[in-house]
Amino acid sequence: LSDEDFKAVFGMTRSAFANLPLWKQQNLKKEKGLF
Rank of each mutant, 00 (worst) to 15 (best):
residue 11 G to Q: 05
residue 26 Q to C: 13
residue 16 A to M: 11
residue 15 S to C: 07
residue 17 F to D: 02
residue 25 Q to T: 01
residue 5 D to V: 02
residue 31 E to Q: 11
residue 11 G to M: 05
residue 22 L to V: 11
residue 33 G to K: 10
residue 13 T to R: 03
residue 9 V to W: 04
residue 23 W to I: 04
residue 6 F to M: 08
residue 34 L to E: 15
residue 7 K to H: 08
residue 18 A to Y: 04
residue 18 A to V: 10
residue 8 A to K: 14
residue 5 D to H: 15
residue 34 L to I: 11
residue 30 K to F: 04
residue 15 S to I: 10
residue 30 K to A: 12
residue 34 L to A: 11
residue 6 F to Q: 00
residue 11 G to W: 00
residue 33 G to R: 09
residue 25 Q to Y: 00
residue 30 K to Q: 13
residue 18 A to R: 06
residue 35 F to A: 11
residue 10 F to M: 14
residue 8 A to T: 11
residue 34 L to T: 14
residue 18 A to K: 06
residue 17 F to G: 03
residue 11 G to Y: 00
residue 4 E to M: 15
residue 12 M to S: 03
residue 7 K to Q: 13
residue 5 D to P: 01
residue 19 N to T: 11
residue 28 L to K: 01
residue 3 D to K: 14
residue 3 D to C: 13
residue 24 K to S: 06
residue 31 E to C: 04
residue 3 D to Y: 05
residue 11 G to C: 08
residue 16 A to Y: 04
residue 4 E to D: 13
residue 31 E to R: 07
residue 13 T to H: 07
residue 32 K to A: 09
residue 19 N to Q: 13
residue 6 F to Y: 09
residue 15 S to A: 05
residue 13 T to V: 05
residue 26 Q to D: 14
residue 10 F to G: 02
residue 7 K to S: 03
residue 5 D to Y: 04
residue 5 D to Q: 14
residue 4 E to Q: 15
residue 31 E to D: 05
residue 6 F to W: 09
residue 2 S to E: 05
residue 5 D to G: 10
residue 19 N to S: 12
residue 26 Q to E: 15
residue 33 G to S: 11
residue 14 R to C: 02
residue 19 N to G: 12
residue 15 S to K: 09
residue 5 D to N: 14
residue 27 N to C: 11
residue 2 S to Y: 02
residue 7 K to F: 09
residue 7 K to Y: 03
residue 10 F to A: 05
residue 9 V to F: 05
residue 34 L to F: 01
residue 16 A to N: 14
residue 27 N to W: 08
residue 16 A to S: 08
residue 3 D to H: 09
residue 26 Q to R: 09
residue 28 L to V: 07
residue 26 Q to Y: 06
residue 7 K to I: 03
residue 17 F to T: 01
residue 14 R to M: 06
residue 8 A to E: 10
residue 12 M to I: 10
residue 8 A to S: 08
residue 13 T to D: 14
residue 12 M to W: 04
residue 34 L to C: 09
residue 29 K to V: 07
residue 12 M to T: 05
residue 17 F to A: 02
residue 27 N to F: 14
residue 17 F to K: 00
residue 6 F to S: 03
residue 22 L to Q: 15
residue 16 A to C: 10
residue 3 D to I: 10
residue 18 A to P: 01
residue 32 K to L: 05
residue 3 D to E: 15
residue 6 F to C: 05
residue 29 K to A: 11
residue 11 G to L: 01
residue 20 L to C: 02
residue 28 L to E: 04
residue 29 K to R: 10
residue 17 F to Y: 12
residue 33 G to E: 09
residue 17 F to H: 05
residue 17 F to N: 00
residue 10 F to E: 04
residue 8 A to R: 12
residue 7 K to R: 07
